[in-house]
């Protein structure tokens, strides 16, 4: 039985140019359309066997976060099904639900309960969590006195010390200093070797190459390729340099080249930025829509 099985999952977001359109459409109860659909994911199939460490590669806006959010159940797919076998802990933001007024001790309990862990289990593992977070005396101080590194360490400590069957990590090693990174990575290797299924997003090719057993490459909401890690990272590098070259061409031409590759901006195009900021979202999608439709070598046309 696969740990995670994704079948034909697509996800679209409704885009409205302003709030009034959104309301008008809601009030018409599906009779009229004022917005349009933006497909963040199209027809994703993915099977992850237990114990796999799957790296997820892709540029900003490729749909990595959306896919992980759907697998973890935070977002509902527009179509398709997701099946998850085992306890899943997702870390897309650290210390979600932390309350600044309360102590580290209280927040460990609160955060654990939010993640869906039994109270008894949190009590039993409390010492491990505190030791791993390594914040010493601060455990009995309100979180508002913590540095941001301490906060994320605490959040990370709760999530990885409850022995998830499936762990979803989104850019999470980016927190903490070098020493802590080492500890965190150590813990991740430990989890991996004890058979935890890990879905891992990072922009660091090195980490993915050394850490992951398999990888999947997403591009514009589709699975471009999947398989052995180094093969995927090579493909990803090729894709990136391809796009860079294309971009440089455009610059040197001084005008929009008749290219068939969509070149999103480095910032703002990411789906993360896109779904959180509505105002900026519209303009960036319009730009996307205005750009010529995409086809990169090896990328399945649809």
């Amino acid at each position: 039985m696969p740990a995670v099985s994704v079948k034909g999952v697509s996800k679209s977001f409704r885009i409205f140019s302003n709030g009034r359109d959104r309301l008008k459409e809601a009030l018409s109860f599906g009779r009229k359309k004022y917005g349009r659909d933006f497909w963040a994911l199209k027809d994703i199939d993915l099977e992850v066997e237990p114990g796999t460490t799957l790296g997820i590669l892709g540029r900003n806006g490729a749909g990595k976060s959306t896919l992980l959010n759907i697998i973890s159940g935070m977002l509902q797919p527009t179509s398709g099904t997701v099946e998850v076998n085992g306890r899943l802990v997702a870390l897309s933001g650290f210390g979600v639900g932390f309350d600044a007024e309360f102590t580290g001790r209280e927040n460990i309990m609160l955060n654990g309960l939010i993640l869906g862990i039994e109270r008894q289990e949190i009590v039993e593992r409390f010492d491990d969590i505190a030791a791993f977070a390594d914040i010493g005396q601060f455990i009995d101080q309100p979180i508002k006195t913590y540095s941001s590194g301490m906060k994320s360490r605490l959040g990370f400590a709760v999530a990885v010390n409850v022995e998830p069957d499936i762990l979803i990590l989104d850019e999470t090693l980016a927190v903490g200093d070098a020493v802590y990174k080492e500890t965190a990575l150590q813990k991740m290797y430990e989890l991996r070797d004890s058979g935890t299924t890990i879905l891992f997003v990072s922009h660091s090719m090195n980490t993915i190459e050394t850490f992951c057993t398999e990888a999947v490459l997403l591009h514009e909401g589709r699975v471009l390729a999947s398989g052995e890690t180094t093969e995927m990272t090579d493909q990803y590098r090729a894709l990136v340099s391809n796009i860079k070259a294309q971009k440089n061409n455009e610059r040197s031409d001084g005008k929009q080249a008749p290219t068939d590759i969509v070149v999103p901006d480095e910032e703002g195009e990411g789906l993360e930025a896109w779904s959180s900021k509505e105002g900026g979202a519209t303009s960036s999608t319009e730009r996307r829509a205005a750009a010529p439709r995409a086809c990169v070598a090896g990328y399945p046309e649809g």
Binding site: Q76, V82, E83, N85
Partner: peptide, 27 residues
């Protein structure tokens, strides 16, 4: 080991009854 199937059709009557149970599970 728990199996969770997330489908595109949430909000069924069974799911609604299930969320009454969450009140107890997450007490």
């Amino acid at each position: 080991m728990s199996t969770k199937v997330l489908s595109a059709k949430p909000g069924s009557w069974r799911a609604i009854l299930g969320s009454l149970a969450t009140f107890y599970e997450r007490r």
